[in-house]
Simulated assay, not measured.
Amino acid sequence: MSNAKKRHLTVLVVDDNASMRAALRGIVKADGHDVVGEAAEGKTALTLIRQMKPDVVLLDMMMPVMDGMAVLTEIKEAGLDTTVLVVSGNQDQALIQQAFSLGAIGYVTKPLNPGRILKTFEQIAIVRKPRDDRPADAAAESSGRRCVIVDGDAEVRGLLKTLLGGENVEVVAEAGDGMQGLVAIEEHRPDLVFLDVDMPELDGLNVLRCLRAVHPDLRVIMATSRAEGEIVKEALSQRVAGYLLKPVDAAKLIAAVRKALGKP
């Protein structure tokens, strides 16, 4: 993302360690973003989220009074409009998966990795663009037949485009990696996204997490050669409309598209 187009985010830092809050504050400010508040425990954090409405919450897991998981739960249940990036020393995989299931966009383990934090901020800045930035033609009433394909294989993209055309689904954009995909989705606001798992720059599961943070109802079909149980479980937990294995079976693709778009 070029500096000319870079969006500055408002950030709330939540950690019970004052030194850690200072370190996070420094990372955020050095990249040109605004720290609008800090909290040392969960209840204060929730109050500030409601008052300040930050774009991003940097959230620790282990805190007194109310821990990070309870904060995530309340954010999800209350429908608070913010994006949560967990920054924690706890590397328990079950905890990490639970955080993602509650809507966290990412999970960065301590000691701090500024590069990972800022890379996630770049993704958040893309998906949290104001809705007024949406092009006029995309803002018009949708026919329910507009699709963005995000896949690292040009041959697969071509095949998908051909099959979708047979269903009168317009492919409004294609992307070969996850970051390009996020940009295309925000630019065109499609009704359906085809998303691969294995891609350069940003993989499909991370793209899906970004999308769910701000577009919880966007219909996504994943098309991938990977059938590992944990990957499928993660995709299903993010409410994908379909999970297809490559090579893509035309009949299964068409059935998934019709189901996702509510077509007979």
Rank of each mutant, 00 (worst) to 15 (best):
P114H: 03
I117D: 01
D151K: 05
G115D: 15
A125C: 09
A139Y: 07
S143H: 04
I117L: 03
L112N: 03
F121D: 09
R116E: 07
G103R: 02
I117P: 01
S101Q: 07
R146T: 14
S143F: 12
R128P: 15
L112T: 00
G152F: 05
E122H: 08
K129H: 09
A125I: 14
I124V: 10
A139H: 10
A139W: 01
S143C: 10
G115A: 13
A125H: 08
R128C: 12
L159W: 15
R146M: 11
R131C: 12
A138P: 09
R157M: 03
D133V: 07
A104E: 02
S142W: 04
F121C: 08
P130H: 00
F121R: 02
I126A: 11
R146K: 14
E141K: 15
F100G: 04
D132H: 08
V156Q: 06
L102T: 11
I126D: 07
V156S: 11
D151N: 09
V148F: 06
Y107C: 05
R116K: 08
D132C: 08
I124S: 02
K129M: 10
V148P: 07
L118K: 06
P114T: 04
L102D: 03
G106Y: 04
K119C: 01
F121Q: 06
A136P: 06
R145G: 12
G106C: 01
I117Q: 01
G115Y: 10
S143P: 05
A138C: 13
T109N: 08
A136T: 11
I149M: 12
K119L: 05
R134H: 10
K110G: 05
G144Q: 07
T109C: 12
G106Q: 06
R128Q: 13
N113E: 07
D132W: 03
V148S: 04
R131W: 05
I117N: 01
I117T: 02
A104Y: 03
A139S: 13
E141Y: 04
N113T: 09
T109K: 00
A154F: 14
D133C: 10
L112M: 04
R145H: 12
P130I: 00
K119P: 00
L118E: 05
G152K: 06
Q123M: 10
T120F: 13
I126L: 14
F100W: 09
V156A: 04
Y107R: 00
A125D: 06
A140Y: 05
I149H: 08
R131T: 09
C147Q: 05
I117V: 06
R145Q: 12
E141M: 11
G144Y: 04
V108Q: 05
Q123A: 14
V108K: 00
I105N: 03
S142R: 13
K129A: 12
A139M: 14
D133F: 07
D153C: 11
V156M: 07
A139F: 09
Q123R: 11
A140E: 10
